[in-house]
Design a binder for these strands. Structure first.
Length: 494
RNA sequence: CGGGGUGUAGCGUAGCCCGGUUAUCGCGCCUGCUUUGGGAGCAGGAGGUCGCAAGUUCAAAUCUUGCCGCCCCGACCA
C-alpha cells in the first residue's frame, strides 16, 4: 500500500486513511480500554474551539449550563418504555463500590460484600436523571421555559468502535429544555437544529442537510427527531447532530407538571439536542487529503505557522528579530493564532510537511532573501498554492486569505455533495448508484418502516432524513411502486 | 457476538511453510560534525518477556492447543 508521510492514500483504503490521519496528526489514540480513546492535546484543542463556538451560540439563545451526575439509578431508565429499549443493550453498569486485595495476593478483586443495593448505570444520555430533577424544579408556568445545557461525557457500550466516529465513551453536549406548550418546544427543537446547521456550515465549513428522521431512525423516547446530515468524501453520510421534540413523553414518565395561568395542571413539553466529538470525525473526513488534515480557519488551533529559513544561529536570530518584533505582534493584533516554529532541530522541508499534516491553514516562510526584499512566502493548505507577498500589511493579507480558505473548503465540500446527490426513479438505478457512486440518493418511498427495512437489508442504505421544506411531488416508491408524495434522502451511513 | 485478517524494538517489517549460533532491515530515538527556500548527509550508539499461557521437543519467533488485543466485513448505533 502506497503512502505519503506514512498515510495510506484516500482512494486506496479510506478507513485506513482516516485512521492514519487521526494518529499521525496527533488527534487521538486508542486507550487501554477497548473502544475508548485518548484525545491528544492537538485534537482536544480543535474540540475546544468547537465547544466554545457552540457554547456561545447556546448562551446567545438564552441557555445556561449545568451539570448532572454520571451515574443513573437503574430504575430511572425503565420509566420511559421506548427509551429503555433504545439504550438497554449498550449500558455500562456499576454493581459494586469497593475492591479488596485478592486472597491469593495477586492484585485486587471486587469485594462481594460491597454490592450496591440498586445498581447504577453510566449515563448513555441524561434525559432520565434530568427529568427526574426537573420534576422538583417546575411547578408553575413561571418556571418555564427551562433552558439548560450540559457538557459531559457519556458511555455507550458499542460493539464496533472507530476513533471519534464511534467510541464507547465520548464527549458531547446535551441540551434539555422544558416548555409550557408544544408549539414552543417544537420551535426550540427547530431553533437548535438551525444552530447546529449554522455551526456546521460557518465554522466547520461542512454543508449539511436539515431534515426529520423517519419513525424507524427516531431517538428512543422522542416524538420527532430532527437532524443535520453531512456527506463524507467516501460517499457515506454522517449524522452530525440531532435535535428532538420529546412531546410530553418524559414529563409523563417522570411526572413533571406545571400549573398554567388558567390554574390548570398540565405536563410540560420537552426537547433535547446534542452534538458530540463525532463532529471531529466529520471535520476530518470532509476536508482532508492525502497529505493530512485540512482544517477550516475558524476551528484551527493554529491558523498561521511561521517557518524561518536560516543558515546558522546568527541567521535564525536575524529572522526571529523581525518575526518577533513585527510579524507576530501584527498578526496577534489582528486576532490570529500564530505559531512560530523556530526549532533548530528540524529542517524547513520537514516542518512544512508536518504542519501540512496538522492542517494549519496558512504557512509563512521567511528567509534571508525575504529580509532583503521585505517579503514573506505565503502558502495555503487547502490548495497548496504559494506566493510571495510584501511584509507590509501582512495581517490583512492573511485575514483575507483565511476567509477565502474558509469559503473555499466549504464550497469544495458543497460541490462534492452536489455531485454525489443523485435522483433516481427505479430500483435498478437505486442499487447501481449506491454501489458505484455512493452519496445521497433522492428517491420516492412509500412511507412504511417495513419498506425502509427491506431497502436497508438489500443495499445497506438507510433513510437519512426527510429534508425540511421538502418539495412535494407525486411519485412511486422505488421498492414497492406504491404511491408517494415526496422524495426522501437515502445513503449508506456511518 | 458471527466471518475474515493480523500480532516480532516507539512505528513499519524480514524470518515462520521446512524448529538449530548473537532475531533482519528501514524509519524514529541518543551523541558528534557538516547542513538548512519542500520530509538532510556521514560516523558512532542505545533499544526486544518475538501478543499471553500451556504443550510437543535435546532445542520453539518458527509446530500444536487455548486465550487476548487490534483491523476489516456483518448484526447494533450518534
Amino acid at each position: 500500500m502506497s503512502t505519503t508521510k506514512g498515510i495510506t492514500k484516500r482512494n486506496e483504503d479510506y478507513a485506513a486513511w482516516y485512521q492514519d490521519l487521526v494518529k499521525k496528526a496527533d488527534l487521538a489514540e486508542n486507550s487501554a480500554v477497548r473502544g475508548c480513546m485518548v484525545i491528544k492535546p492537538y485534537g482536544y484543542a480543535i474540540w475546544e474551539k468547537m465547544r466554545d463556538a457552540l457554547d456561545r451560540m447556546f448562551k446567545d439563545t438564552g441557555h445556561t449550563n449545568a451539570y448532572f451526575p454520571l451515574f443513573i439509578p437503574k430504575s430511572y431508565l425503565s420509566k420511559e418504555a421506548s427509551h429503555v429499549e433504545g439504550f438497554a443493550k449498550e449500558c455500562a453498569v456499576v454493581t459494586h463500590y469497593r475492591l479488596k486485595n485478592a486472597p491469593d495476593g495477586n492484585g485486587v478483586v471486587v469485594d462481594p460484600e460491597a454490592k450496591l443495593e440498586e445498581e447504577l448505570i453510566v449515563r448513555p444520555t441524561s434525559e432520565t436523571v434530568i427529568w427526574s430533577t426537573y420534576r422538583n424544579w417546575i411547578q408553575s408556568y413561571r418556571d418555564l421555559p427551562l433552558l439548560i445545557n450540559q457538557w459531559a461525557n457519556v458511555v455507550r457500550w458499542e460493539m464496533r468502535t472507530r476513533l471519534f466516529l464511534r467510541t464507547a465513551e465520548f464527549l458531547w453536549q446535551e441540551g434539555h429544555t422544558a416548555h409550557a406548550t408544544a408549539e414552543e418546544a417544537i420551535e426550540e427543537t427547530l431553533q437548535m437544529l438551525e444552530i447546529y446547521a449554522e455551526f456546521a456550515e460557518k465554522y466547520m465549513a461542512l454543508p449539511v442537510i436539515k431534515g426529520v428522521k423517519t419513525p424507524n431512525e427516531r431517538f428512543a423516547g422522542a416524538v420527532d427527531t430532527y437532524c443535520i446530515e453531512a456527506l463524507m468524501q467516501d460517499g457515506k453520510a454522517l449524522q452530525a447532530g440531532t435535535s428532538h421534540f420529546l412531546g410530553q413523553n418524559f414529563a409523563k414518565a417522570f411526572d413533571v407538571k406545571f400549573t398554567g395561568k388558567d390554574g390548570k395542571e398540565e405536563y410540560v413539553w420537552g426537547t433535547s439536542w446534542g452534538v458530540s466529538t463525532r463532529l471531529m470525525g466529520a471535520l476530518i473526513m470532509a476536508h482532508s487529503d492525502d497529505d493530512g488534515l485540512v482544517l477550516p480557519p475558524k476551528l484551527a488551533p493554529i491558523q498561521v505557522v511561521i517557518v524561518p529559513i536560516f543558515k546558522g544561529e546568527e541567521g535564525l536570530q536575524k529572522i526571529s528579530q523581525v518575526v518577533n518584533s513585527k510579524i507576530i505582534p501584527e498578526l496577534r493584533q489582528a486576532g490570529l493564532t500564530v505559531k512560530y516554529d523556530n526549532r533548530d532541530t528540524e529542517r524547513p522541508g520537514f516542518k512544512f510537511a508536518e504542519w501540512e499534516l496538522k492542517g494549519v491553514p496558512v504557512r509563512l516562510a521567511i528567509g534571508e532573501r525575504d529580509l532583503q526584499n521585505q517579503t514573506v512566502e505565503i502558502a495555503r493548505r487547502d490548495t497548496k498554492e504559494k506566493s510571495t507577498v510584501p511584509m507590509e500589511n501582512i495581517a490583512r493579507i492573511i485575514k483575507n486569505l483565511l476567509d477565502e480558505i474558509q469559503k473555499n473548503i466549504f464550497q469544495k465540500a458543497l460541490e462534492f455533495r452536489q455531485k454525489h446527490t443523485t435522483r433516481v426513479d427505479t430500483w435498478k438505478e437505486f442499487e447501481e448508484i449506491l454501489l458505484q457512486k455512493g452519496g445521497f440518493v433522492e428517491a420516492h418511498w412509500d412511507g412504511t418502516t417495513q419498506t425502509e427495512e427491506i431497502i436497508k437489508e438489500k443495499t445497506k442504505a438507510t433513510i437519512r432524513c426527510i429534508p425540511l421544506q421538502n418539495p412535494q411531488e407525486k411519485g412511486k416508491c422505488i421498492l414497492t411502486g406504491k404511491p408517494s408524495s415526496q422524495r426522501v434522502l437515502f445513503a449508506v451511513a456511518y
